[in-house]
Design a protein around this nucleic acid. Structure first.
Length: 457
RNA sequence: GUGGUUGUAGCUCAGUUGGUUAGAGCAUCAGAUUGUGGUUCUGAGGGUCGCGGGUUCGAAUCCCGUCUUCCACCCCA
C-alpha cells in the first residue's frame, strides 16, 4: 500500500463511464455557445505570475498555484533569514502560475492580439483551472470552467444574451435553475448613499452573507469593520427590502436614485429586465441585492445561477468588467461574460439523476475473433462498417468465445458478429443481438446495410 | 489559512478490554461448458491494516506526527 500510486489532493481521475457523462455536458454547452456565434480559443495552463497576481484580491493570490522556476531556482536569491518570508520569496523563485480562471487569461489574450481581433469579440473557452483551496463538496483544486465572453461592446443586449445562453444550456440539461442578478453600480450607489463609499468591499461581503447568517450578524460584522451607526441605520431599508424584482427596483430608486452610479445601475438593470421579460425564457430570474461576488473586477451586472432542486452552491457565475484589459494596458474596452462550472453541473446532474441512459459513444458491433484465418475474413467488413460511420471493433485476441461475448456484454455492445468455419464457407455472418440473445445469419455483402438499419432503431 | 472528520483486499465494510496465521460480500481470474454473455456451482489470486515514529513481551486496535478523504468557516465554479 505504501507504494500505491496516487494523485495530488483535490484532483481527480475520470473513468470512461464518467467521461461519457462529462462529455455530454461539455458537448451540450459547446453547441449552445456556437449557436450564439461564439468562437473558441485556448490559452496555456500557466500564465506569468505578473498576469495573475493582484487580479483576484488578497484571497485569490493565496489560492494561486505557483510553479517553481526551472533549474536552480535558488540561484542568485538572497536566502538570508530576514528574507525568508513566503510571500517575499514566492515571486523570486517562481515566475509562473497555474491559471485561476479563464477571464483574466482572456483579458491578457485580448490585449496581446488586439490588432488581430475583430470587435465585438465573442469567444468561448472550456479548460481546466486550478485553485489551492481546501477541497470539499463541489469544490475541487482542478476543475473545468466553460466561459463565454463578449469584449468591445457596452450593449446590455450582451448581458441579456448571456442569460439566454444560460437558459438554453440548462433547458437542454434539464436542470431547473434560477438566475440571480445584481449590479455592482447599485451596490456602489448603496455604499455612497449610506456615506461609506470606500467601504464597498466590506459592505458587499457582509450583505452577501445575509441569507446565511441573518441580519443581526451582518450588522455586527459591519460594526466590527468600523462602519458608523448612521451608515448601518441607512442600510437597513436596503437589507429589509421586500417585493418582486420590479418593486425592489422602484424602492431602490427612491433610496439611491440621487447618487450618480446608483441611478446608472438602476437604469442598467431595468433595461436588462426589459429584455429578459421580452424573451421567452424557461428559467427564473430575479434581482438579488445580496449577490455581491468576490471578484474584484466586476463593474456592472453580476450573475449567479443556482439549481432549484440540488444542494449545491452556484453552478454558473459572471458579470460585466469595464476595465480588465486596462490592467494590461488597453483601457476603455468593456467586457461581459459568464462561466459554467462543469464539475458542479456534473454533481448536480448526478444528485438529480439527470443523465440520459442511452449514449451514442459505445461500440455498435463487436466481431468475435476465432483465429488468424477467420480474422482475415472479418477485417474487410470491419473496415467497411467503420467507413460507413458505425462504431465497430474486432476482438484482438483468439480467446474463448465466452470471454469475448462477456466482453461485449460488459461494454454494453448491442451486436456481436460471429464468423466461424460455417459462416465463412457460405459467405455469411451470424449476428447476435445481445439484449435478447437471438441470432440470425445474413449474407456478408449485406452486413453493413443490416447493421445500419439495426443501429437506426 | 482555521476547526472537525476519515483511512483495513480493486469496491463496500466486519475485526471483542491490545493477544497466535486480519475476515465477509461484491468484483477479478480459472474450471464445470475447446462456437455463445448477463443465472448457478467449484476453486484460486489479492493486505507491511494510509505512511513514519513511539508505548508494550505483543499494536489494525493506545499515543504523537504526517498525508489523504469528507464537512464547516473563509472564499468560490
Amino acid at each position: 500500500m505504501a507504494q500505491k500510486p496516487s494523485i495530488p489532493k483535490g484532483m481527480r481521475d475520470f473513468d470512461p463511464q464518467t467521461m461519457v457523462k462529462r462529455n455530454y455536458i461539455f458537448d451540450t454547452i459547446k453547441s449552445v455557445f456556437k449557436r450564439f456565434g461564439y468562437l473558441p480559443i485556448e490559452t496555456p495552463a500557466m500564465e506569468n505570475l505578473t498576469t495573475l497576481l493582484g487580479k483576484y484580491g488578497e484571497e485569490g493570490d493565496k489560492l494561486l498555484f505557483k510553479v517553481l522556476n526551472s533549474g536552480d531556482f535558488l540561484a542568485g536569491v538572497d536566502t538570508s533569514t530576514d528574507n525568508l518570508f513566503a510571500q517575499k520569496m514566492a515571486t523570486k523563485i517562481s515566475e509562473k502560475g497555474l491559471r485561476y480562471d479563464l477571464t483574466v487569461p482572456f483579458a491578457r489574450f485580448v490585449v496581446q492580439y488586439r490588432n488581430d481581433i475583430v470587435f465585438p469579440f465573442k469567444r468561448y473557452q472550456m479548460q481546466p483551472v486550478w485553485r489551492a483551496d481546501r477541497p470539499q463538496k463541489g469544490r475541487y483544486r482542478e476543475f473545468y470552467q466553460c466561459d463565454v465572453d463578449v469584449v468591445g461592446s457596452d450593449s446590455l443586449l450582451n448581458e441579456a444574451e448571456l442569460v439566454q445562453i444560460v437558459d438554453d444550456v440548462f433547458k437542454q440539461l434539464k436542470i431547473n435553475v434560477i438566475v440571480k442578478i445584481n449590479n455592482r453600480k447599485i451596490l456602489s450607489g448603496i455604499a455612497e448613499y449610506i456615506g461609506a463609499t470606500e467601504r464597498l468591499t466590506d459592505i458587499t461581503v457582509a450583505i452577501d452573507k445575509l441569507d446565511k447568517i441573518g441580519i443581526e450578524a451582518v450588522n455586527n460584522e459591519l460594526i466590527e469593520k468600523g462602519l458608523s451607526v448612521e451608515s448601518i441605520d441607512l442600510l437597513q431599508p436596503v437589507l429589509f427590502m421586500t417585493g418582486n424584482s420590479r418593486e425592489k427596483i422602484e424602492k431602490l430608486k427612491l433610496l439611491i436614485g440621487q447618487t450618480e452610479t446608483g441611478l446608472k445601475g438602476i437604469d442598467e438593470i431595468t433595461i436588462l429586465f426589459n429584455y429578459l421579460d421580452f424573451f421567452n425564457l424557461n428559467l427564473g430570474f430575479e434581482l438579488d441585492l445580496t449577490l455581491a461576488r468576490g471578484l474584484n473586477y466586476y463593474t456592472g451586472a453580476i450573475f449567479e445561477v443556482k439549481s432549484k432542486d440540488a444542494s449545491m452552491g452556484s453552478i454558473c457565475g459572471g458579470g460585466r468588467y469595464d476595465d480588465l484589459t486596462g490592467i494590461f494596458g488597453m483601457p476603455g474596452v468593456s467586457g461581459v461574460g459568464i462561466s459554467f462550472g462543469a464539475d458542479r453541473i456534473f454533481d448536480v446532474m448526478t444528485e438529480l439523476s439527470l443523465f440520459p441512459t442511452g449514449t451514442s459513444e459505445t461500440t455498435l458491433a463487436l466481431f468475435v475473433n476465432f483465429g488468424k484465418f477467420e480474422e482475415l475474413y472479418c477485417l474487410p467488413f470491419v473496415q467497411q462498417l467503420r467507413d460507413d460511420g458505425l462504431n465497430t471493433e474486432i476482438y484482438p485476441d483468439h480467446e474463448k468465445m465466452k470471454k469475448q461475448i462477456k466482453y461485449a456484454d460488459q461494454k454494453k455492445i448491442p451486436y456481436v458478429i460471429i464468423a466461424g468455419e460455417n459462416e465463412i464457407e457460405h459467405n455469411q455472418f451470424t449476428i447476435k443481438r445481445m439484449s435478447t440473445g437471438e441470432q440470425f445469419t445474413v449474407k456478408n455483402t449485406e452486413i453493413v446495410h443490416i447493421l445500419k438499419e439495426l443501429a437506426a432503431n
